[in-house]
């Protein structure tokens, strides 16, 4: 009772402590977000070197979606590119990470140097994405060392050029993303597996379950919340994909992903428009916001209920154990 009164007395300090965050957020994020919505309904044009704008309702949205004659629905193509590139990276990523997480936590078949595997596979995700993109471009360009070696070994045809093939370029971007992030996903899944009560595995052992049964009947179902978390953060991150495709196989002026605009992502499109057509760029941003929101909402629909509570407990437990990190 006494404690509670004390807390109330100090309450005003709570506002002071959270004030910097909220003021900064309002100024640098919320106000720009509101403005973006506002700009998406303005038509910008230049006359005599000066910029003018007028309200135009949903005209920009109709333009970017190609509902007006003379306008093409580029943005749909870029959403498609983004989803294809993200999907080709995510599916192998989650499968490989599951496998590695199961192996690296298996106490029956104890692998040596598990720490080293975690450290090495996580390494690519801390390196500057821009450098990685340029590196892979150099390695896989028309006369790049890997391309030449693959040609010498007869694995690819002598006239094949990764950078002139849509499948080659998209596939390589997906591969880079996979390569960068599978170590991270493995670590997240390992922390999920470690949060599963060992009692369950002991009980399964007594019942004579083999490794496969334990994986499919215990590990996989109980990993569902964390896998959902991985899926959603990856999907939202994937939608904003910029660094890798923007430096990989692009035009000199930038922001057009070769070949045939097939490796251009939505964020690259925003980049292309931000200076030339503010209204259109804002409309693309709003569209991106809506798609992101829908994906988040799907997450919250699946992610609530008792699963999330179990997840919260797990996190808490891990935190108290890992206090010395």
């Amino acid at each position: 009772m006494k404690k509670r009164r004390k807390k109330v007395r100090y309450g005003k300090y709570g506002y002071l402590f959270v004030a910097p965050f909220f003021l900064t957020y309002a100024f640098f994020q919320l106000w720009p977000l509101i403005n973006t919505f506002f700009y998406s309904m303005l038509n910008y044009y230049k006359r005599n070197g000066r910029e003018f704008s007028e309200f135009c309702g949903l005209q920009n949205f109709q333009n970017i979606l190609g509902l007006v004659s003379g306008e093409k629905a580029y943005v749909l193509h870029y959403f498609k590119n983004t989803f294809i590139i993200w999907g080709m990276n995510f599916i192998p990523q989650i499968l490989v990470s599951l496998l590695l997480a199961a192996w690296l936590t298996d106490n029956k078949v104890r692998l040596r140097s598990r720490g080293a595997v975690k450290v090495i596979t996580y390494l690519p995700s801390v390196i500057t994405a821009a450098s990685i993109s340029v590196l892979f471009h150099a390695l896989f360009s028309q006369y790049g060392p890997i391309t030449m070696t693959l040609k010498n070994l007869g694995i690819i045809g002598s006239s094949f050029n990764f950078l002139e093939s849509s499948a080659g370029t998209r596939g390589l971007i997906s591969f880079i993303l996979f390569w960068m992030w599978y170590g991270n996903t493995t670590l997240l899944l390992i922390s999920g597996v470690l949060g599963i009560s060992p009692d369950l595995y002991e009980a399964a052992d007594i019942d004579g379950a083999n490794g496969r049964a334990k994986f499919f009947r215990i590990t996989l179902p109980l990993l569902k919340p964390i896998m959902l978390y991985v899926l959603i953060t990856s999907a939202i991150g994937g939608l904003q994909m910029y660094d890798i495709p923007a430096l990989f196989n692009v035009s000199n002026t930038g922001y057009v992903g070769f070949p045939n605009d097939n490796s251009t992502t939505v964020a690259m499109y925003i980049m292309r428009l931000y200076n030339s057509d503010v209204g259109k760029a804002a409309a693309v941003s709003v569209l991106l916001f809506i798609v992101t929101l829908i994906i988040s909402l799907i997450f919250f629909k699946f992610g609530t209920s008792n699963e999330e509570k179990a997840e919260a407990r797990r996190r808490k437990k891990r935190l108290s154990e890992g206090g010395g990190c």
Partner: peptide, 8 residues
């Protein structure tokens, strides 16, 4: 994400 608010 940043990409959404960048225009504003």
């Amino acid at each position: 994400p940043n990409q959404i608010t960048i225009i504003g």
